[in-house]
Every structure is written in C-alpha cells, then in structure tokens.
Design a protein around this nucleic acid. Structure first.
Ligand code: MN
Ligand code: MN
Ligand code: MN
Ligand code: MN
Lengths: 234, 234
DNA sequence: AGATTGACTTTGATTATTCAAAGAGTGATA
DNA sequence: TATCACTCTTTGAATAATCAAAGTCAATCT
C-alpha cells in the first residue's frame, strides 16, 4: 500500500488534465466550453455534460450550464499532479531510457495514471529534479506549484535573438521536424525577418548555413524567450 | 499508436495471470477451482462465475461448471505475456532504478498493464535480456515460451550443497528476511540438517558464522538446485 | 435414505463510463 | 419578429465489473 497513491480513475484524471490544458490554451477566456472538451477527449457532448455535473458535485470544478467549466483549487491541484507525473515520465523516458522524444508522449499518457509515488520520486531523483520536460514544458512541484514564466510564441515576437523555450509536444511528426532543424528547447537562434503578408518567418541557427523558413502556424507552436545580443562588442 | 499493444482490460489480464499462477501452484490438479480464484482476486464467487463464463466464450479458458477452469493455449499465452511484463518491470526497478527488491512487486502489478511494447523492449535491452527476475523467477519470452527447469523447494530436498534458485515474491517482510540472511537467488549454501520431528532446517552460508534455522513453512518458499561439492579435493 | 455442508450458480441491483437521439436555449439572420 | 444554426442538456440504453442474497448440486454424515 505504501507509496501507492489512492487514485482517481483514469477517466477523471484525463478529464481534469484536459480541462487544465484547455484553460492554459486560451488564457483569455475564463471558462472551458464543454463542446471543446468533448472534442478534445473524443466523446459525445452528452458524456461531457454528465461527467462535469459529477465533478461539480465532488468539488473538482465549477460548472455553469450552457457556459462552461473551470477547475476549483482542488481540481487544479489534481490536474497539476497528473501533469507532473506526465512530464517526469517523459523526461525519464528520454533522458534515462534514451527513447525518442517524439514518441514518449503516448507512453506517458498511459503511465501517468499508474506510477506510484515511490517510483515517481525515484525517476525524479535519477533525473536530478528537473524543472522542465524534454519539450520545455515546466514540471509542477509535488505541491502543485507551477513556476509561471509565460513566454510568447514565435509568431508574436519581433525579429531579434532568441532561444527556444518550449515546443508543442502532441505531434511526433512536428517533433521530428523540430529535431532535424535544430530547434529543440534551449537552442539559440536569430529571427531575421517576419513577412506579415506571406506569413513567412525567416530564422537562422548557427548549426545550419541556410536560413530556415516557416509558417505562422508552425511559429505558433514554438515558444521563445529573448536573449541578449549574441556578440556584444567591447 | 505504434508500440502500443491493444490490450485486454486490467481485470482480464489479472484474472488470466492469476489462473496461470494457481495452475502453477498446484501442478497436480488440472483445473483451478473458482472459489480459490475468488479468494485470490478478492471478489465474490458470483463475480468469478460470471467472468469465467465470459472468458470461455472468448476462447481464453475451458470452463467446467462446478469443477473449475483451465487456460486454453490462447489464454495461457496472454497470461504469460502479463507475467513477462511483470518480471521485466521488477528487474528494471531493482537493477536499473535501484529500488528495494522487497517493494517492487506492487509497482509491477500496476505497470504490467500499461507498458508499451516499445518501453518494455527498451527495459529488456537495458537489462541485457535477463532470463530471470530479481526473485529468481524465469521470464517468459515474447512468444510466451517459458524455460521449464523445475527446481524443488528446500523443504523437499536432503542435506547437501545447494544454491538458492528462486524465492516467493509476494511478501515484502519475507523478502527482507531473505536479504538479511543472505539467501538471495544465486546464493550457495549448505543444508546441514533436516529434523523431521521439529520441522527445523539447519543451513549454513559462508557469509555468516552461525548456522541459520528455519521452519518447513519458510523452507517451502525457497526453491533450490543442488551444486557439486563446494571444495573438490585434488 | 434423509439431512447437512460447502462450493458454486443465478438473479437482481449498482457504479462508472459511454453513446445516440431527441429536446432546449441563445444569439445571429432575414 | 420568425427562423436558423449551434451548442448544450436530457433521456434511455449499453457495457464492464462488481456485490448481496437466494438457489442448486454433490459429496459426506448420521
Ligand atoms: Mn506530453
Ligand atoms: Mn492520460
Ligand atoms: Mn512479483
Ligand atoms: Mn496486476
């Protein structure tokens, strides 16, 4: 029994995590619409309504019929623990087990619901208590604290020097492309030009001679933070 | 999707595994009685009857009402895959993650139902494709072959020189005791005396000066294989 | 034989999760 | 304003897993 969290069902954990993620995805809107949840979770709207009403009863969410849901403190804490497990697992699979960073998300989706506190702590320890996962996503603490350093997506910044902070982790194809083009988290690069008409972003990483061109869509999935001028003259 | 086994439910996997284990536990009797299964799985007899009838339909077991069940080839193969995952996971937790061998069983019980083929293969590879787990239990192959070298329990052998082959893995307290007394799998020792009246077994491991005394009950949970005379004189 | 016992089976119900289809609310459109 | 188009809610039903309690069988004991 020791070390084994008494856990919520897979379903509940996934629902809470998804509500959290959709909340993050649209920081402007205070509530997550049920239709969006239904789509994200791949179930019918009726299912969502039923489940959400149950969560409201349990004090995990606040539910306004025909408007949306939002997590309570309790629900948010639970969600962040799932996120924490997910990200530590991903880190472990990549750093320790040397698995492909483009393929670990799926494994983490299943493992996040069954790892014991013991096992999680051991992974964390072997990793040296990382603060971000392989995709650059921050890892919540065991008390559900999340360091909130919000960085803008590449599509919203002006030309200049940056480092990749984090990238969308949902699509293996996208992650493969990121790797091939030297745009993993931590990578410094220069955004040379933004053509607002064509929506083409031109950027340069020192690892490649040719500049890299990408669309606004892709630029929206890469978050960056500015760095001081690369060669400050004395 | 790649690497993710389409799997049976947790419940089905656990039921099949348990039928397999009970079959092994009583090699004499051809069928496992439902009451024993109910007890082992901690559910009521009615539940077992219902489930087993379903498994029979699916061709996983042969069921004789009021007599018992036995696995079909298909059911046995599935069961052995669960056992394989369980034992590779236990090995990984002990050898790679340095977790306590007395505590990994429980984690393996949960993880065995969710690891992907990919992740399992990676663990196996990092371990160097072991043939037994930390408790000395043989690991079935990916095609459900199981090397059948049946070794007798200590309680059934005459005095002489032996090595520990495998020990019961279900009880942390027992495993701790095994560790403390230098009786892990692979350990050579000498069975000096068997007192059939008191049921006391006297044995000697070179690591400890004093001989070790144990009961028939405990001796039944340790399987051993004979070794050539320790110091053959030239 | 008739009664007893223990093991197993049946039945009816419950919980969690889900779907399909029909109904209702809300805002935009003509 | 009457109507549409969406989105969400309700309802009724299904599935998997489970239990409690009542019923059945077969072997054992007077
Ligand atoms: Mn992920
Ligand atoms: Mn998940
Ligand atoms: Mn085990
Ligand atoms: Mn299990």
């Amino acid at each position: 029994m020791k070390g084994h969290r008494f856990h919520m069902s897979f379903t509940t954990e996934n629902y809470l995590k998804t509500i959290y993620q959709l909340t993050e995805r649209h920081p402007a809107t205070p509530l997550v619409r049920l239709g969006e949840l239904a789509e994200e979770l791949g179930v019918t709207p009726g299912t969502i309504t039923t489940m959400i009403r149950g969560f409201d009863q349990k004090g995990l969410v606040i539910y306004k019929a025909r408007t949306g849901v939002k997590l309570t403190k309790k629900g948010r804490d639970q969600a962040l623990q799932v996120v924490r497990r997910h990200r530590i697992i991903e880190s472990f699979l990549v750093e320790v087990m040397k698995m492909d960073w483009a393929e670990v998300h799926e494994d983490a989706e299943a493992l996040e619901h069954v790892v014991s506190d013991n096992f999680l702590a051991r992974m964390d320890e072997m990793l040296g208590f990382p603060s971000t996962d392989p995709h650059g996503d921050p890892i919540p603490s065991s008390t559900s604290e999340l360091p909130t350093r919000e960085h803008p997506p590449l599509c919203e910044v002006p030309p200049g020097a940056y480092k990749v902070q984090r990238v969308d982790d949902q699509e293996p194809v996208f992650l493969d492309w990121i790797s091939e083009n030297h745009l993993r988290p931590g990578q410094p690069f220069e955004l040379q030009k933004v053509d607002s008409v064509t929506g083409i972003f031109t950027l340069k990483v020192s690892e490649k001679k040719a500049p890299l061109l990408l669309s606004t869509d892709i630029a929206g999935r890469i978050r960056v933070h500015p760095v001081q001028d690369p060669q400050p003259r004395i």
